[in-house]
């Protein structure tokens, strides 16, 4: 008996993997149905639908990057405190935390990569016309995922609390001030007033709500931290689940009719 076979026949191995490595047709079908992770997939699929030159694997890569970001992000959270006192110092100290190695690098570059692959996925879905019926609504869910991916990246940008972070968010969030009706420097805000008192002021407008203050400060850091680490990822995870479910319900990856 080879060492490999010995391991695969041990009680421990067989207690973890409910099924031996599938080598014949019947077992290859069964594994797809019985394995929790694999059952996201159908059992069999059209050859061209999974050709790399067709899907560019961009949706799958985006999903993989989302998982990478989740794992590295959780590791980073162990070392990071979102307060004015600690945020910058913690990131700086991370460089000396040997056990974490290049987690911050992977998290940052993975985030850039995810923004790029989401676009490229959208690009391919458009160019293959895969948004056409019956997949219209999955495209809409996709656009929501695109926005949320950008927002994930944007909220994370602030967390290191260095010059780059704070000013990039300042530039970005100044837009909220110009929101029509809801921004204190936006057109039409004067229309929202009660008995001569403006409802929309720098202390109550869209920018204030986004930042939790008039400027990027401690409240902003807290807000962005929670959005970045909890709120948006939860929504994204939910939408990805629906997105995948729809891919299958809409008849699998698109093919010529």
């Amino acid at each position: 008996m080879s060492p490999g076979e010995y391991i695969r026949n041990s009680q421990i191995w067989r207690s973890i993997f409910r099924h031996p490595a599938p080598t014949d047709r019947r077992n290859r079908v069964v594994v797809m149905l019985t394995n929790f992770f694999l059952h996201l997939h159908p059992v069999s699929i059209k050859q061209q639908g999974i050709a790399l030159s067709y899907t560019w694997c961009m949706g799958g890569i985006t999903f993989f990057l989302f998982l990478v970001e989740t794992i590295t992000g959780v590791l980073l959270m162990f070392y990071y405190r979102p307060t004015l006192e600690w945020a910058f110092a913690d990131i700086q100290a991370l460089r000396d935390v040997q056990t974490l190695g290049i987690m911050r690098e992977i998290h940052r570059w993975g985030a850039h990569a995810m923004v790029i692959t989401v676009w490229l996925h959208m690009y391919r879905v458009f160019l293959t016309g895969s948004y056409k019926p019956p997949r219209e609504f999955n495209w809409v869910i996709g656009v929501l995922l695109l926005v949320l991916t950008l927002l994930l990246s944007f909220t994370g940008y602030l967390l290191p609390w260095d010059q780059l972070a704070v000013w990039a968010i300042t530039v970005g969030s100044n837009m909220a001030r110009a929101h029509p009706f809801l921004g204190s420097e936006g057109p039409g805000y004067q229309l929202l007033n009660l008995g001569g008192y403006d409802l929309i002021t720098p202390g109550s407008d869209a920018k204030f709500i986004l930042l939790g203050g008039r400027f990027v400060g401690e409240a902003t850091l807290n807000r962005f931290y929670i959005l970045h680490c909890v709120a948006i990822p939860l929504v994204v995870a939910g939408l990805i689940a629906i997105h995948f479910w729809r891919v299958r319900k809409d008849g699998g990856i698109s093919q010529p009719l």
Binding site: M32, V43, S44, Q47
Partner: peptide, 16 residues
């Protein structure tokens, strides 16, 4: 092109 060689294949092993 997409209609040529477009047999159904098993997800394990082809896609996995």
């Amino acid at each position: 092109y997409e209609q040529e060689d477009n047999e159904k294949v098993l997800v394990w092993p082809d896609l996995v």
